[in-house]
Design a protein around this nucleic acid. Structure first.
Lengths: 143, 143
DNA sequence: CACAATCGCTTGTGGAGAATCAATGAGTAT
DNA sequence: ATACTCATTGATTCTCCACAAGCGATTGTG
């Protein structure tokens, strides 16, 4: 409940930073996943982001047009699309990281650095269990 | 950044619980604000929720039809609408609190009760500063 | 090898929710 | 009397999401 409200404020702030780049938060999330997990199959991203496959296509199209990602094809199974972070994409993420850090500084200014660290750690664990719990509606997936 | 992702999962879960009641998350947020701040002017809610006035009208219409709020008129300035939580609304919030608690239990199952307490405290403080920081774009408001 | 079934991506479509904007009516302030 | 505020309506637009149908590539079976 609290998180919902906090998230709303967060979204607004993030959009302010991301919008000038012509990116939507969604796409930023995708790029982030790519950096963390390396080149990934397209369907992996579908599961990861929890969006429809058809929707992901449009999303990737824009990222590709912007030169932030590269679409490849799996040599061993050419049905599969492999999405890779382009150099330009990595650089953009680095730049963005700094901007987002400033937002964090602003929002969490009343917290000590120690408090911030524990907050972050707790959120990580909550997010992990949250991802798993969110899959109860689709029991056929591995999750 | 993390919060954005976590929030996404949260929204999905919350909607699952709230939807059966015919309520959208937005409206729940409005009811919550009403409980915390007592009867409020309609424009106050506009600022608080950060949505357009015209949108708020439709939102309140549904809440009023459902008997969850009561629309009054400020005696000293009859342009102003005063929104009040109806008894039925309070009861619904109580019921909902229990349901949301179950979600929290699920999502935060890997956290000890102590960790949960600190997490909550930290989020409260972050949300407070976040609300203030979110108003930089509208400097004319009191905030 | 040939055929059918399947998989992964793509395209197109339609609907729900929400944001934005202009205009109106009632009320207040100067 | 005029200008301004608040709530409301209406129209328009946009994003997001889910479903159906398609095409190419791959796998399994006879």
């Amino acid at each position: 409940m609290l998180i919902a409200q906090l998230a709303r404020g967060m979204r607004r702030r993030i959009e302010q930073v991301v919008a000038p780049l012509g990116l939507r938060p969604r796409q930023l999330l995708a790029l982030n996943q790519l950096r963390e997990r390396g080149p990934s199959a397209q369907q992996t991203l579908v599961d990861l982001l929890g969006i429809d496959a058809s929707n992901l296509v449009a999303l990737l199209n824009e990222l590709e047009d912007a030169g932030l990602i590269v679409r490849r094809r799996d040599r061993t199974d050419r049905r599969r699309g492999i999405i890779e972070l382009a150099e330009q994409g990595e650089q953009l993420l680095d730049d963005l990281a700094r901007a987002l850090e400033r937002i964090d500084d602003e929002l969490l200014s009343t917290l000590t650095s120690e408090e911030r660290a524990t907050l972050n750690a707790l959120l990580v664990r909550a997010a992990e269990t949250g991802m798993v719990a969110g899959c109860t509606e689709v029991p056929d997936e591995g999750c």
